[in-house]
Amino acid sequence: MDRTAWILNLREPFGAALGRELVSRGWKVLGGDPGEQEQPNSEAQRGSGPAEGEKIGENPDVPTGSGSSGFEDFEGSMAFGPETNGRSVVKKSEAQSEHSKGDALTDRGDPLSADNPLPEHGKLKAFPLNPDQPGELEQAVQATAELATHIDLLILNTDESSETGGRPIFPTDAAAFREKETGFSMPETVESRLYDYETYALTPLRIVEKLLPLMEAEDRLKRICFISSHEGSISAGGASAPIGQAMARTALHMQAKLLFNDLRRSGYTFRLYDPGLSRSSVPSSDELMGSIPGKVAESARFAAGFFTNPHADEERLVLTGSRGEEWPF
């Protein structure tokens, strides 16, 4: 059976890695991202085979695939045939050079070749989706409906990549790193706190509202997954995160619980996941900072299984970490 997942922030490193994981497992993956540009020729599918640039999820700093420890290790992985994700071979040095220009995730377009048909499990498509832009959500929903008759798995990834204007989640960002090391943070404003609320809580709810009609079929998976952080745990979230961000993540947890209470009765199942990538999760030493891309890949791999497999107890909503640990609300 054709299975379709929809991922918010599909170009953000974790979203991209998760998208690749799902594609490798035979899923069709759609999604919205503020970094996505409108394509002149909007194609439903990405091409496979040789291409000049990277594809979604092809951030060379984010290796993917079981046992993979780096981008070059990933090349030729049996788990991900090179055609499965329409990805071209990009040397690490070239990729890093591109990444240093700040456009490592930019999709340069790669027309589908009739000689290289895309395998069924290689479908992946991102739509422009910036909540600040009026009408983009409606357009993304319409485009989704044109490409998929249903959505089985809705993944609300609220982490952000720095290139989309959001707050960086990686301590490689100088300001974030300084904050973690010194405890000193730039003052938050009402505006920044409202931005956090829109980003982490309201945008996911807007998407659930709009995409729910595409999930209603009786014989489908009907699973909604929230990507969050233990920073939103009221009692165990600590004090290191910006307060507006922590509050907004807590609001997201409440939203997940309310939707769980309502939609569970209609056969929906839920996941609430902390990928372990927030600043308070990531060690601050230079040595460990270098392993962050691997941590993203590892967490995405866990998430792919966690999101697609049945769970022993679907009657409880639990904030689950990337090692399977349970966080209190």
């Binding site: 609320y197 809580a201 709810l205 939103g232 009221i234 009692s235 979230g237 600590g238 004090a239 995160a241 307060i243 922590a246 509050m247 907004a248 993540r249 807590t250 609001a251 997201l252 947890h253 409440m254 939203q255 619980k257 309310l258 209470n261 309502d262 209190p328 609300f329």
Partner: peptide, 30 residues
């Protein structure tokens, strides 16, 4: 604002605001 005890099926704006308040207060407490 109690997520653990939440039994409502809507009330998004109000419940989210009170849960977030509890989180903010806990951060100030910490």
């Amino acid at each position: 604002g109690s997520i653990a005890k939440a039994e409502r099926t809507a009330w998004f704006g109000y419940c989210m605001s009170k849960a977030a308040l509890n989180r903010g207060v806990h951060q100030l407490f910490d």
